[in-house]
């Protein structure tokens, strides 16, 4: 695991412990994807509204904890700021609010919305003839929503080669409505699809750097709770739970020992 990704995961645990709010496993599964995007796209944490910036939309808004800690790791604010996560009058809600948190481009939470907004942003960049790139991260569970596939069809039909969809394939829906082979499905919709181990930061960055003339989809095969065996082996128990002090010590130990 890359140092920055370990640091982000460590802070996710700290924030969850201090705030009492969770969604840790789903936040852990996207750390490399988020890090790859923020190490690739044009952005300036000192000028979050920089006109020529690229845009990122977290469509699976319930992973906001991972998102906030990634933004903190890239200089948008401090990790300590995020300790107010979910608290009354905090900027940092359990789903992100673009009007409160610098670096958040769209407020999300209800699933299947962010990708459509991202399509609109990418279309706007095309109409304005800018070089802006738009990235959105969607979940496999979220992809039960029909609106996800509407948005993909529209993106392909409007030839949005400036749009990248990162698909967090963390096996969320195996228990109810699985998306059999997402790479084949996105390819059938006309996307330029790459599939990779979703915790391989270098591989994700390499895929993001590859030129394309179509809507780009990265199917990232991930593990909920990646980095801590206690989380990855008990995802239902930890779905929305915050660690108590003794559990925090144990989880930090697993994370820093490299155990899965």
């Amino acid at each position: 695991m890359d140092d920055i990704c370990r640091k982000i995961r460590s802070e996710i645990l700290n924030v969850s412990n201090k705030s009492g709010h969770g969604h840790i496993p789903t936040s852990f599964s996207i750390v490399e994807m988020l890090t790859a995007v923020y190490q690739t796209m044009r952005h300036d944490p000192k000028r979050p509204d920089m006109p020529e910036r690229d845009l990122f939309v977290l469509s699976k808004g319930h992973a906001s904890l991972g998102f906030y800690c990634t933004l903190a790791a890239h200089g948008y604010f401090s990790f300590e700021d995020v300790y107010a996560f979910g608290g009354f009058d905090s900027r940092f809600g359990c789903h992100p609010d673009r009007t409160k948190v610098p670096g958040v481009e769209a407020s999300t939470g209800s699933l299947g919305h962010g990708i459509g907004i991202a399509v609109g942003m990418a279309l706007a960049a095309k109409i304005a003839s800018t070089k802006r790139k738009v990235y959105t991260l969607i979940g496999d569970g979220e992809s039960n929503e029909g609106s996800v596939w509407e948005a993909v069809m529209v993106a392909v039909n409007t030839k949005l080669d400036n749009l990248t969809v990162l698909y967090d394939n963390n096996q969320s829906q195996g228990r109810c409505l699985p998306i059999g082979n997402p790479a084949e499905r996105f390819a059938a919709f006309g996307c330029d699809v790459s599939e990779m181990q979703g915790h391989d930061l270098a591989a994700i960055k390499q895929a993001l750097a590859k030129p394309t003339d179509r809507v780009r989809v990265l199917v990232c095969n991930t593990v909920k709770g990646y980095g801590c065996a206690t989380l990855s082996e008990n995802v239902y128990e930890w779905h929305r739970r915050a660690p108590k002090p003794d559990e925090l010590t144990k989880l930090q130990g697993e994370l820093h020992a490299g155990a899965i």
Binding site: H113, G116, G120, M121, E150, M153, V154
Partner: peptide
């Protein structure tokens, strides 16, 4: 380049409209 008959996909029509608005 400013006209899109986007399809019979009302949810996405509105989301895309929001995204266009976000960019001015």
């Amino acid at each position: 380049n400013r006209f899109y008959n986007m399809g019979i996909c009302e949810n996405t029509l509105v989301s895309v409209t929001a995204g266009l608005s976000s960019q001015g």
